[in-house]
Simulated assay, not measured.
Amino acid sequence: MGDLTGLPDLLRECAPQVLAAVVRRYGDFDACEDAVQEALIAAVRQWPETGVPEQPRSWLITVASRRRVEMLRNEIARRRREETVRHEPEPEVRGDDELALLLLCCHPALSVPAQITLTLRAVGGLTTAEIARALLLPEATVGQRISRAKQRIRDAGARFETAAPAERLVAVRHVLYLIFNEGYTASSGDELNRVELTREAIRLTRQLHRRLPDDGEVAGLLALMLLTDARRPARTGPDAALVPLADQDRGRWDTAMIAEGVGIITAALASAPIGPFQLQAAIAAVHDEAARAEDTDWPQILLLYGMLHALAPGPMVTLNRIVATAMVDGPRAGLAALELVADDPVLARHHRTAAVRAHLLELAGDRAGAREQYRLAARLTLSRPEQRYLESRAARLSSC
């Protein structure tokens, strides 16, 4: 291989000669200098393994010339592409592009959890941490799921299209629901609402409803969003503090959205098989149609939650059913029901469980216990508006 101790000196000696030869042949000093630098780097990498060629300067000129020709070809190709694009019409902006992206993310090559996670990232714009909180999963799990989902989309050769295969609709509806929820009550940060997410979820769900007008669950989802978002103007006070449902000024609710939502869910219940989103929308309609909090038909809400629990059980359904039980049978009955699910790992670490327990203890007259639970709930939530509200409830009990 020979002695390479003088390699740096050799390259420094050859470099100006090689550059001069290449510039004389091709012109454009800047590009030729880049090509020569790449040839020198190639020499440093290869010559220790292959040995210094008999004509090192010729070797460098050949490599630099090839690189310069490659650069010229790339430049010519780039100019041709630009010229072609310049004479082509701009891509059409289509109103259903987001929906097509949603369906792409819900490709059958992915598991349902992967479909939901990828869509929340691609369509909803949520961070990995926000998705983890929405799905009650570790952040590392969500990050791995997103990476694997992208790879599977590539491997499956999925196409960008607006057709809606039936097997994707369950995931699509769930994804839209989660996007709306993250917007309506942001899981972290200073703002209670992320209006851009709720609007996007409603807009996409309207598109889906227009394409599938006979799908009762799509109708139920749209009605649920409208009936819930109608209360948003009253959810915060002048100081941006959270105002719970029972204390809201119902005169600030959006009556047009309520009327639309009630109309949609009424029609869906009369014409389609009952599903979880329809039941949730029906519960929201009962709340929205009560002129005052004390007028709320809690027995009907408890009945609807019982149906929902039988059809689609889950931690939050269980918790909301317990609240309804307390409103019908009293706070002690609600606390007893809460003790029965105390070992549920999801409910045990969720701030809403502590907040519900605090509220029921307060109604039952246990101020000290309620204060402790309000403080626990405040520590568990990452939403600062919710933290401030829960801390204020605890402080109020301390001052009584």
Rank of each mutant, 00 (worst) to 15 (best):
M1C: 05
G2V: 05
G6P: 05
L10Y: 01
L19V: 10
A20M: 12
G27S: 12
F29V: 15
L40A: 10
R45Y: 06
W47G: 13
E49L: 13
T50Q: 09
G51N: 12
V52A: 12
T62E: 09
V69I: 15
R73N: 12
R73F: 03
R73M: 07
N74T: 15
E75T: 14
A77V: 15
R78Q: 15
R78P: 01
R79I: 04
E82V: 03
E88G: 02
P89T: 01
E90H: 04
E90G: 00
E92C: 06
E92W: 05
V93K: 13
V93P: 04
G95R: 10
L101P: 00
L102M: 03
L102A: 02
L104E: 03
H107D: 15
P108G: 08
L110Y: 01
P113F: 00
Q115I: 03
T119K: 01
V123R: 02
T127N: 02
T128I: 10
E130S: 14
A134K: 05
A134G: 13
P138H: 11
T141N: 05
G143Q: 10
Q144R: 14
Q144T: 05
S147F: 07
S147E: 13
Q151D: 09
A156Q: 08
E161L: 09
E161P: 00
A164K: 14
E167I: 11
R168I: 00
R173T: 01
L176R: 00
L176S: 00
L176H: 00
I179T: 11
I179N: 04
I179L: 15
F180N: 02
E182H: 11
E182V: 08
E191Q: 15
N193V: 14
V195P: 09
R206A: 04
H209W: 03
P213I: 04
D214Q: 09
D215Y: 00
D215R: 04
L222W: 03
L224N: 08
M225F: 13
T228P: 01
D229E: 15
A230N: 04
P233G: 09
P244I: 04
A246C: 02
D249S: 11
A259Q: 11
E260L: 09
G261T: 02
G263Q: 10
I265W: 06
I265K: 04
T266P: 04
A267D: 10
S271N: 10
S271W: 03
Q280C: 07
Q280V: 07
I283F: 07
I283W: 07
A285V: 09
R292Y: 08
E294S: 12
D297I: 06
W298R: 08
P299C: 06
P299N: 07
Q300T: 14
Q300I: 05
L303V: 10
L304H: 12
G306S: 12
L308D: 01
A324Q: 05
A326T: 03
L335T: 02
L335H: 00
A336H: 08
A337F: 02
E339D: 15
A342K: 12
A348C: 05
R349C: 12
R352W: 03
T353H: 04
A355D: 08
A355F: 01
V356L: 07
V356H: 03
A358R: 00
H359E: 11
L361G: 00
L361M: 06
E362D: 14
E362Q: 14
E362W: 05
G365Y: 05
D366H: 06
G369Y: 03
A370F: 05
Y374D: 01
Y374F: 13
R375S: 12
R379H: 11
S383N: 13
S383W: 01
Q387S: 11
E391V: 11
E391C: 05
S392N: 12
R393L: 10
